[in-house]
Amino acid sequence: EDAPSSDDLEQFAKQFKQRRIKLGFTQADVGLALGTLYGNVFSQTTICRFEALQLSFKNMCKLKPLLNKWLEETDSSS
Rank of each mutant, 00 (worst) to 15 (best):
E1I: 15
E1D: 15
D2H: 15
A3S: 15
A3Y: 11
A3T: 15
P4R: 07
P4V: 14
S5N: 14
S6D: 14
S6G: 15
S6V: 15
D7F: 03
D7W: 05
D7A: 09
D8L: 04
D8I: 03
D8K: 05
L9Y: 04
L9P: 02
E10P: 05
E10W: 10
E10T: 09
Q11T: 13
Q11W: 02
F12V: 03
F12G: 00
F12N: 08
F12W: 05
A13S: 03
A13C: 14
K14T: 11
K14V: 06
K14Q: 13
Q15Y: 06
Q15V: 10
F16M: 03
F16H: 03
F16P: 01
F16Q: 03
F16L: 03
K17P: 02
K17F: 03
K17S: 06
Q18E: 12
Q18C: 05
Q18R: 08
Q18K: 14
R19W: 04
R19D: 06
R19A: 11
R20Y: 01
R20K: 00
I21Y: 14
I21W: 03
I21V: 06
I21C: 04
K22G: 06
L23R: 06
G24M: 01
G24D: 02
F25Q: 04
F25L: 09
F25M: 07
T26C: 06
T26D: 01
A28H: 07
A28E: 12
D29W: 03
D29L: 03
D29E: 14
D29K: 11
V30Q: 01
V30P: 01
G31K: 02
G31L: 04
L32A: 12
L32F: 15
A33G: 04
A33R: 10
L34C: 05
L34R: 01
G35M: 05
T36C: 08
T36F: 02
T36R: 13
L37D: 06
L37N: 06
L37W: 07
L37E: 11
L37F: 11
Y38L: 05
G39W: 05
G39R: 08
G39L: 01
N40G: 12
V41R: 11
V41G: 12
F42N: 03
F42R: 04
F42W: 08
S43I: 05
S43K: 07
Q44W: 03
Q44D: 15
T45N: 14
T46I: 09
T46Y: 11
I47W: 05
I47E: 00
C48T: 10
F50L: 02
A52I: 03
A52H: 09
Q54V: 04
Q54I: 06
Q54L: 05
L55M: 09
S56E: 06
F57M: 11
F57V: 09
F57H: 12
N59W: 08
N59M: 13
M60V: 02
M60K: 10
M60R: 01
C61R: 10
K62Y: 13
L63Y: 05
L63T: 03
L63S: 01
K64F: 03
K64T: 05
K64N: 06
P65M: 06
P65T: 07
L66C: 07
L66W: 06
L67G: 02
L67N: 03
L67Q: 00
W70S: 06
L71S: 02
E72T: 09
E72F: 04
E72P: 02
E73G: 08
E73R: 10
T74K: 13
T74H: 15
D75G: 10
D75I: 11
D75W: 07
D75P: 15
S76A: 10
S76V: 12
S76P: 14
S76I: 05
S77H: 13
